[in-house]
Design a protein around this nucleic acid. Structure first.
Lengths: 203, 203
DNA sequence: GTCTATATTTCGATAGAC
DNA sequence: GTCTATCGAAATATAGAC
């Protein structure tokens, strides 16, 4: 493994564990087993190293969202993605960056974060649109809204899991979201609630 | 205003803007207009000052959740709480702490964060339980799960809003959650999807 | 390309005058 | 109670030998 790779790998791990601001070049070099000069030879500084390392983390997040465009009915795919194992107490590699003041002030890093969420949200939106078309979700569903709701459940699940130091809140939040989706599916199957049932329905 | 109060106010503001790790005693003192000696007279250090300041932020979060136990039907209260104005791009004063490595490693601060979420979750759970009892939500609803789902939508909304530097994702996530709740309510009004409707229903 | 040595600034905290 | 002066350590980066 090249020195450059060892540096980006170490930085990626520390970005996840500690965030950007709290990660010092010294720690990165120590974990990579590399001297100070090497780092400043390959990268102009902490910023450039973080950008290079963070691209890898983003690719992972985006790859995981592939199931949304995979096999099965739209709602199956949605629920499968929701149910994917997520290490709640470790937090989301990407989402955690949004709470780091140095990241938010860094246009390049923030653009990477925003781009990652955009890509995943687009996949959510596509799957939800298909679910509505298939009659699996109510016609009144706004795909773009629900996409962000489900993204938020996952990101919020990480927050709650870290607050409690436990995986349980993440799993419970996901179960609750799936239950809501199932209720919406049931409602979609019986479209307009009425007080006076139609003749056909009683036949 | 006492020197002590000026210090806690300044610390509370900086905790929200920058988090714990990224806030230095120097900045706090500068914003409070107070010398270094004063701070170390009133508090043993950064940690103790942050604990004192953070209690105030938590009281605010908990007070805002009062609507969950207020006027109106359970679902009305739930949707009113969801619809409360939330400064997405500023982030949640409490939730942001969970991404701060120094906070997670600090048992006292972490306990404050966990306690705040527990208190709000208990109010969510109570309101949801009432909604189920009133037939506003399906009997199959697990109140504790849905409570964490809705908490997560808000916390995740902050994450997405900060990623995009815009309020829009927060508002969309909340709209999507309300739409799901409405769908669940519709499903609750027509409990068991059946192919053969009962006699009474057609009378 | 990689290393060690050093520079500069800021961190969190202490000392001690007033 | 409040201030200024100062400490030791760590942050980020540069210099320059090999």
């Amino acid at each position: 493994m090249s020195t450059r790779e060892r540096l980006t790998d170490a930085m990626a791990a520390l970005l996840w564990e500690r965030g950007y601001a709290a990660t010092s070049p010294n720690e990165v070099m120590a974990r990579a087993g590399v001297g100070q000069g090497s780092m400043y030879h390959h990268f102009s500084g902490k910023h450039e190293l973080a950008v290079a390392a963070f691209r890898g983390a983003i690719d992972t997040l985006i790859a995981e969202s592939g199931v949304l465009a995979g096999e099965g009915t739209p709602v199956e795919r949605i629920e499968r993605y929701l149910a994917q194992p997520r290490p709640g107490t470790k937090g989301c590699r990407v989402g955690r960056m949004t709470q780091d003041p140095q990241v938010v002030q860094d246009p390049e890093l923030l653009a990477l974060v925003a781009g990652a969420f955009d890509t995943v949200a687009a996949r959510w939106t596509q799957a939800i649109t298909e679910a509505v078309a298939a009659g699996e979700l109510p016609a009144s569903t706004v795909p773009g809204d629900l996409a962000l709701t489900l993204s938020a459940v996952l990101q919020g699940g990480y927050v709650l899991a870290r607050a409690k130091g436990s995986q349980a809140p993440m799993d419970a939040a996901v179960r609750g979201a799936v239950a809501l989706l199932e209720a919406a599916r049931a409602a979609a199957a019986r479209p307009q609630p009425r007080t006076t049932p139609s003749i056909e329905e009683c036949s």
